[in-house]
Design a protein around this nucleic acid. Structure first.
Length: 569
RNA sequence: CGGGGUGUAGCGCAGACUGGUAGCGCACCUGCUUUGGGAGCAGGGUGUCGGAGGUUCAAGUCCUCUCACCCCGACCA
């Protein structure tokens, strides 16, 4: 392809709308342009990368036995009402009406549609298992789209759905997808990690997220430094190092409970500093609403509540912190002074790291008042202990004896769920077994953020000058840089190299613009094509061209006549 | 949805407080020179100053409403 024939509007300056590096570089490299918040045009270069990724995804999905289909983007409301998600999904579901006033939504995911298809077409156990996938635009009306393709409202997703006769077969289908996903991300040239995840709103029994490791990732990835354990923050469990070992009551003399005035000291930092104790000697009391109940949660001062775990304990889909006025009503004191001692008619759940603590500090349920030397059981007894906190770096691994947990950032590019019968039951998708009895199909669903992979790949592969594409997803493999288009020798040599490589099946971009060398170098670095072939008079006088690797900037001089002959794809 | 901010040329921005012919850099077009890391000189403005009302002799600037976008938070594959 000739550069002047392609629309590649590179920018010298960083557009103000972009915050993170992948978004900036995609705009600067002329890959995408924004149409509306979270909605983007793909220009030729961006689309080529997208297609590369799609091809890898298709090949691996097909290899794993999945079949490609294509479902509509506009979905009728009735299907969503059948599973209850028309009401559950909230504002993220973009709803619209047709001319007859019938209700529809733009598809954010396709469990309902595919289940409807299968329940109509599949009747017998002989037709199973089935795994159907599509690569398609999804629309989720995100509260706050940001970071370009990383969190768009319209985005391109590969979604697959498996249907099996029973749990064991469903797990086999899941395992195949898990392996296909590993192959896909490996082939895309990404450094990634599959982690255990909470299954969230889509529901189901277990689930993995595939995380591309990058400092700018939006999610925290927890993993063990000794064994293979890895989970996302919502799901990760850990053994607390300090409280469970050091703060055993038996090792301490219980001191008498005391009241201390702590004027205006509300935060853990302030109270700890004021009283001259460590943050981990405090216990926070958070008043939360889950469903229609108000619950007090106790978490050690240096720990954070994990709302996902907490919601699961309460068996509700979401929990929220009470507003200050509600806290005052529930405890009799302004927020910041809540404590478990003397709380009435409120369920108290304590994080397991609080178990066995002694001589600690809690709020006094009175303005400007805290209690010190509080001890479990003597002064109060929680209704329940449970793991409701975020793990911290250095916590013990829950799976092995010696491992310590480490935390890195990741970008979620894939998610696999074992759904079980959640949708087949609510939508009555059944098959007849060998005995002729109707049984619910057991399902799985598997998503890959195809467009997000582009952003993730750039987050992981760039330098100060631009993108450095992994070869498998690069828009071109080679860019030829004739440094002076007015030199006949340079021009014809560049063109013959272009022709030679093209005939060998190499995807080549020839920068035939009449630009100065500096401009071509800068743009080539920005675009991130893995190999640059530099053709200049200087080199040609010695009969050579330079082959430069974008990633390392290593330059190899090669005789012109040798170049095509010795080229290895 | 709450808080903050920004809309002026393709991109980055100034001009607004204090109303008086819409500007700067880059990009773009023409010509000449130049040509190995974002060239120089000369010429060219490509703009409903986000939109609608209003105040005024006069509005990019003041007032009201509105739309879009960005950031923080809550939320989320």
């Amino acid at each position: 392809m000739y550069y002047t024939k392609l629309l590649i509007p590179t920018l010298r300056e960083e557009p103000g709308e972009a915050e993170i590096i992948s978004h900036k570089l995609m705009l600067r490299a002329g890959m995408i342009r924004k149409l509306a918040a979270g909605i983007y045009n793909y220009l030729p270069l961006g689309y080529r990368v997208l297609r590369k990724i799609e091809t890898i995804v298709r090949e691996e999905m097909n290899r794993a036995g999945a079949q490609e289909i294509f479902m509509p983007m506009v979905l009728p409301a009735e299907l969503w009402r059948e599973t209850g998600r028309w009401d559950q999904y909230g504002k993220e579901l973009l709803r619209l009406k047709d001319r007859h006033d019938r209700e529809f939504c733009l598809g954010p995911t396709h469990e309902e549609v595919v289940t409807d298809l299968i329940r109509k077409e599949v009747k017998s156990y002989r037709q199973l298992p089935l795994n159907l996938y599509q690569i398609q635009s999804k629309f989720r009306d995100e509260i706050r789209p940001r970071f370009g393709l990383m969190r768009g409202r319209e985005f391109i997703m590969k979604d697959a759905y498996s249907f099996d006769i029973d749990e064991a077969c469903a797990e086999e289908s899941y395992r195949k997808m898990f392996e296909a996903y590993n192959s896909i991300f490996r082939r895309c040239g990404l450094i990634f990690k599959p982690v255990e995840a909470d299954s969230g709103l889509i529901g189901g029994s277990f689930s993995h997220e595939f995380m591309v490791l990058a400092d700018t990732g939006e999610e925290a990835v927890v993993s063990c430094d000794a064994c293979g354990y890895a989970a996302n923050m919502e799901k990760a469990e850990g053994k607390s190092q300090k409280s469970e070992v050091r703060s055993q009551k038996s090792e301490y003399d219980l001191l008498p409970l005391e009241r201390k005035t702590t004027p205006g000291k509300k935060s853990v930092e302030d109270v700890a500093a004021f009283l001259g104790v460590a943050k981990e000697q405090l216990v926070k009391t958070l008043l939360m609403r889950g469903g229609d109940k108000v619950v007090a949660v106790l978490v050690r001062g240096d720990h954070e509540l994990n709302e996902t775990k907490f919601a699961r304990i309460l068996n509700v889909t979401e929990v929220e912190l009470l507003a200050p006025a509600e806290v005052e009503k529930a405890t009799g004191a302004p927020s910041g002074f809540s404590g478990p001692v003397g709380l009435k008619d409120i369920l108290v759940i304590a994080d397991s790291a609080v178990k066995g603590m002694a001589n600690f500090v809690v709020g006094g349920n009175e303005k400007d008042m805290h209690l010190i030397n509080v001890s479990m059981e003597r002064d109060f007894t929680p209704d329940q202990f449970a793991d409701v906190r975020n793990v911290q770096e250095g916590d013990g691994c829950p799976r092995c004896e010696t491992g310590k947990l480490i935390i890195v950032r990741g970008i979620e590019v894939g998610h696999t769920f074992k759904l079980g019968t959640k949708y087949s039951v609510s939508m009555d998708a059944t098959y007849l077994d060998e005995a002729g009895r109707p049984q619910h199909m057991v399902m799985g669903c598997y998503g890959i953020g195809v467009s997000r992979i582009i952003a993730a790949a750039i987050e992981q592969n760039h330098d100060k000058d631009g993108i450095i594409w992994p070869a498998a997803i690069a828009p071109f493999k080679v860019i030829i840089l004739p440094l002076n288009m007015t030199s006949g020798n340079v021009k014809t040599t560049a063109e013959s190299i272009y022709k030679g490589l093209s005939e060998k099946g190499v995807e080549v971009l020839l920068d035939d613009r009449d630009e100065r060398a500096g401009v071509k170098f800068k743009d080539a670095d920005l675009l991130g094509i893995p190999v640059q072939i530099v053709v200049g008079d200087k080199g040609l006088n010695r009969g050579i061209v330079e082959i430069k690797t974008r990633a390392t900037r290593e330059v190899k001089e090669v005789a012109v006549e040798q170049l095509i002959l010795s080229w290895e794809i």
